[in-house]
């Protein structure tokens, strides 16, 4: 559980933490003019309170620090020299914090997939497709794809390097997509989950929704073969225009 500490000497009684907390963790003690942590279990570590606190009186411990990726090394070193006691995040590129951030992201992704499955049941693939279509309409496109091959090239660029895709067309209809490096596969391995689960379903439909919207066609999954090193999707492309 996340532990919140309020430095009562430093607090200036502005009540902004009480106002901004999205889960109403704090209550304001008007007699002593300080916030009191009433519902610590509700805190999910967004750090809104410590960010707004004018006197830096609120500190959290036990929270995941997935923000470690963007800290500047020069700035961190300078901060460490100002007050040797302060707890610093780690600079970008640190392997341990990178792993922790990925774990954190993984937990959230799995939770999202589970919630979708519970609430939507068999409509899960549709969520992925809709998300992929939305992505296709919202990404800046520097060149409008003219041919189906252009769309595939664009997809390779957009999904890399998180997903390494190798799409190959055989004739006009048959598409084979090999997925090399994949964050979801790494996550499943780390958590001991079988490949081809809800996250994989979401991912495939996300990709299919994206390609389909870009090329004005429908992608129908013929066969999927999850693998330890690479996964293969065989797809039938049904053109609309």
């Amino acid at each position: 559980m996340i532990e919140i500490k309020v430095d009562q000497d430093a607090c200036v009684g502005c009540t902004l933490c009480v106002d901004l907390c999205p889960t109403d963790v704090f209550e304001f003690d008007t007699a002593n003019s300080v916030p009191v942590v009433k519902k610590p279990g509700e805190c999910f570590g967004c750090l809104s309170c410590s960010e707004i606190c004018p006197s830096d009186a609120i500190t959290h411990s036990g929270n995941l620090r997935s923000e470690d990726h963007y800290h500047d090394e020069y700035n961190l070193r300078l901060a460490s020299l100002l007050a040797p006691g302060i707890e610093l995040p780690k600079a970008a590129g640190d392997k341990e914090s990178e792993k922790r951030a990925m774990d954190d992201l993984g937990v959230r992704l799995l939770a999202v997939a589970a919630v979708f499955r519970q609430t939507l049941g068999g409509s899960l693939p549709a969520v992925g497709t809709m998300a992929g279509r939305t992505l296709a309409t919202q990404l800046p496109r520097y060149q409008v794809p003219k041919t189906f091959q252009d769309v595939l090239d664009l997809a390779v660029a957009q999904f890399g390097p998180t997903w390494v895709l190798k799409p190959v067309m055989d004739g006009d209809e048959n598409l084979t997509v090999d997925v090399g490096d994949c964050y979801i596969r790494e996550l499943c391995k780390a958590k001991g989950l079988e490949l081809g689960g809800d996250l994989c379903v979401l991912f495939y439909n996300y990709l299919a929704g994206y390609i389909g919207r870009m090329s004005d066609s429908r992608l129908k999954l013929v066969e999927s073969a999850p693998g330890d090193k690479a996964c293969r999707y065989k797809v039938q492309v049904i053109r609309r225009s």
Binding site: G13, D56, A83, G85
Partner: peptide, 18 residues
């Protein structure tokens, strides 16, 4: 004593109010 790294407000006696 340990050096803290808080902002100026932490030692300001003025009352911050809405």
């Amino acid at each position: 004593p340990a050096l803290d790294a808080k902002p100026v407000c932490a030692q300001c006696n003025r009352k911050m109010e809405k």
